[in-house]
Design a protein around this nucleic acid. Structure first.
Lengths: 214, 214
DNA sequence: CAAGGTAAAACGAACGGTCGTTCTTGACAA
DNA sequence: TTGTCAAGAACGACCGTTCGTTTTACCTTG
């Protein structure tokens, strides 16, 4: 038998996933046909269906890919014990989105476009909603942790609920993704400037550096 | 010569549009079939196609409906010459979304769900992108005007670009819409509290009332 | 080493179903 | 009668998926 190596098999799977992600990013999930994915992957229908049982499973896999990428992109923001300001964290998130999310280095697909498709799909597909909700919860939790530290440092009133602040911080990133796709000319620097002005109207320099990994 | 025409004919058109909007909100544009819309409208295929030339035209009409509703909901925020704080305006927008956008009074459809579908569709349909972009530009312009007045009142540095601040303000509304749909338990009051804390960390009462129409 | 067996992997034509759309037909108002 | 419009069966195209066949590469055997 063609005892193909595991890595080869995983590579094939990744190729199919990449082709699907590229088409999904361009046309959305339901305006993309399996025939297109099959052609894009360079394989046959039967081969594709031996790696993914159905189109829905492919959608789920791409959703996971977006989720994983999002986690990776934002996961390092609080690697150490720093207490950056919310404005600095949102700035860092916007920059990370611009550099690593909009054109993913691994497969060269605009993950921000996929994210919007995932949001829309989540409204009708309970499984996608569950996955997407988990990611959003996680990201909001990271932001809430920032708010908690900022609060502990005395920069926020004690009565403030960190998770609530985290929700607003996450919104600033989601809105950036959305407006950049919908409105030409909304780039990272343009957006960050307004966000920082909104968050620190009196003193313009509340931002300190945000650490990456150690 | 149409005997019962005009208002009756417009009513029919509205019925079809309502049925389409309801199904689009539930399942998105491409997972909704014309057969479903035809059944939902209570008319026949031929009748529906005499009012709308194609499914694409129906999608465009629903996009317009969402746009119009959004304009109406947010158009009154700056009716007079008041200079409310950005936080107060975003608060008012979130409340308007909750009360008038999430369940539109005219047709009883969740416009926020439709908005997400429009965002996704805009990424692949140039006409929808144009319409959606126009609306987002308009909303951001309204927010920018708030920032401009706030700046003129001396609450923002002169170097700040109002449109940039408007983009961030709009993000806070878009993020609310998104997170409310994706995460159970994100209601208006919960969200507003965090937003206000983020925008006015030092003095918790920057908000004043925002005027409706005169 | 060479040849043949074997089973996984890939192929791709074909399938039933559903899609968006059209068009013939009938009913009714003028 | 005649003009208008709705009804809904019918249509071709394309959908996601299946499955019988062919190819491939490793293992066994002489």
């Amino acid at each position: 038998m063609p005892r193909v190596t595991d890595s080869h098999r995983a590579g094939r799977r990744a190729e199919i996933l990449t082709a699907a992600a590229r088409l999904f990013a361009d046309n959305g999930f339901h305006a993309t046909s399996m025939a297109g994915i099959i052609a894009g992957s360079g394989l046959s229908a039967g081969a594709v269906y031996s790696y993914f049982r159905s189109k829905e499973e492919l959608i789920g896999a791409v959703t996971d890919l977006v989720s994983t990428t999002a986690d990776e992109v934002f996961g390092e923001l609080l690697a150490d014990g720093a207490t950056p300001s919310p404005a600095a964290v949102v700035t860092a998130m916007v920059e990370e989105v611009t550099e690593r999310f909009i054109t993913d280095s691994v497969i060269g697909v605009d993950m921000s476009r996929l994210a919007v498709q995932v949001w829309a799909e989540a409204l009708r597909n309970p499984e996608v909603l569950a996955r997407a909700g988990r990611v959003v919860t996680g990201l909001r939790g990271h932001c809430a942790e920032v708010a908690r530290r900022w609060q502990a440092a005395g920069n926020l009133p004690a009565a403030v609920v960190p998770d609530q602040v985290g929700a607003a911080m996450l919104s600033l990133v989601q809105g950036y993704i959305l407006q950049r796709l919908l409105l030409p000319g909304t780039d990272g620097a343009y957006y960050v400037a307004g966000m920082q002005a909104l968050l620190a109207p009196s003193s313009m320099l509340a931002a300190s550096s945000v650490s990456g990994e150690t």
